[in-house]
C-alpha cells in the first residue's frame, strides 16, 4: 500500500509539474462550459416560445434535468473519451523510453503495486476534472430547481465512466513504448466501447443481449435516469478490475518474457 501511494504521488506530481494537467483540465472545462451554455440557451429559448403560446401542458413537460443535465453529462462523457487517453498515454511508454522502467522493475516493489499506483495517480486527475465540472450542476441549483438525486446519480455515472475509461487506457498504455500508439489505441478502444450499443439495436437474440450488457452507454443511461442499480455498478467495477488485472499481467509478461 505504501508503495502504491509512493508511485501514485510521483505520478500526480509529474502531471502537475508540467502544463499537462492544467491544459487537460482547462480544455475539458472550457468545452464543457460551452456545451452547458449552448444547452441552457436552447432551453431558455424554447421555454420563452412555449410561454408565449400559453400552453400549460407543454410547459409542464419542460424539464431542466432532461433538457440540460442529461445531454450535458453525455457530452462530457464524450469529451472524456478524448481526454482520458491523453492522461494514460504517458504512463508506461515514458518510463520505458527514459529507462526509469528499470528502476521500477528492479526495486522490491510488486508489479501490481506499480500498476495500482499509476492508475490511482490518473484517477486523482480524472476525478478532479469530473468534480470541477459539477460546478455546472451547482449553478443550476442556485438559479433553477433541478432534481438533485437525479443530478447526483448522473455525476456518479460520469465518475464511474471516467474510472472505467482510465482502466482501459492504463491497460493499453502498458502494451507499448510509444505515446502515439498508446493514445490512438486507447481512443479506439473507448470509442468502440461507447458505440458498441448501436450494434445491439440491429441484431437479434442472445447476441443483442450480450452487446447490450457490454455497452457502457447502456449502463450510463440507467444512472442518468437516476437509478442507482447494483447491476450497473457491478458493470463498471468489472471493467475496472479486468483492466487493472490485465495491466498487471501485461507488465509482468514484459518482465518474464
Amino acid at each position: 500500500m505504501r508503495n502504491v501511494l509512493t508511485i501514485a504521488g510521483r505520478e500526480i506530481r509529474s502531471y502537475f509539474a508540467s502544463p499537462v494537467a492544467y491544459v487537460l483540465i482547462a480544455a475539458y472545462l472550457a468545452l464543457a462550459g460551452y456545451f452547458f451554455y449552448a444547452l441552457i440557451t436552447a432551453f431558455n429559448t424554447s421555454l420563452q416560445i412555449y410561454s408565449m403560446m400559453r400552453n400549460p401542458e407543454m410547459l409542464s413537460r419542460f424539464n431542466l434535468n432532461e433538457m440540460v443535465i442529461v445531454p450535458l453529462l453525455h457530452n462530457m462523457a464524450v469529451l472524456l473519451i478524448f481526454i482520458v487517453p491523453a492522461i494514460t498515454m504517458r504512463m508506461f511508454p515514458e518510463e520505458k523510453r527514459s529507462g526509469t522502467y528499470e528502476l521500477l522493475l528492479t526495486s522490491p516493489v510488486r508489479v501490481g503495486e506499480i500498476v495500482l499506483g499509476k492508475f490511482a495517480g490518473g484517477l486523482v486527475l480524472v476525478l478532479l476534472m469530473v468534480g470541477l465540472s459539477s460546478f455546472f450542476g451547482v449553478l443550476l441549483l442556485l438559479y433553477g430547481n433541478p432534481e438533485v438525486p437525479l443530478m447526483v446519480a448522473g455525476y456518479l455515472g460520469l465518475a464511474l465512466m471516467a474510472m472505467a475509461f482510465l482502466a482501459i487506457g492504463t491497460l493499453i498504455s502498458s502494451f507499448t513504448d510509444n505515446v502515439v500508439i498508446a493514445y490512438v489505441g486507447a481512443l479506439f478502444a473507448l470509442l468502440v466501447l461507447y458505440t458498441i450499443g448501436w450494434l445491439g439495436e440491429t441484431i437479434q437474440g442472445a447476441g443483442a443481449a450480450v452487446i447490450k450488457y457490454a455497452s457502457i452507454t447502456e449502463h450510463f443511461q440507467t444512472l442518468l435516469k437516476g437509478i442507482i442499480d447494483t447491476r450497473d455498478l457491478a458493470y463498471f467495477v468489472t471493467v475496472l478490475v479486468i483492466g487493472i488485472f490485465l495491466t498487471q499481467r501485461s507488465v509482468e509478461s514484459v518482465r518474464w518474457r
Binding site: R10, S14, T100, E102, L103
Partner: peptide, 13 residues
C-alpha cells in the same frame, strides 16, 4: 543497487 546503462531519471523531478 543497480545503475543501468542510462541512468533511470525522471526529468521532471
Amino acid at each position: 543497487g543497480y545503475l543501468p546503462e542510462n541512468p533511470p531519471l525522471y526529468n521532471d523531478m
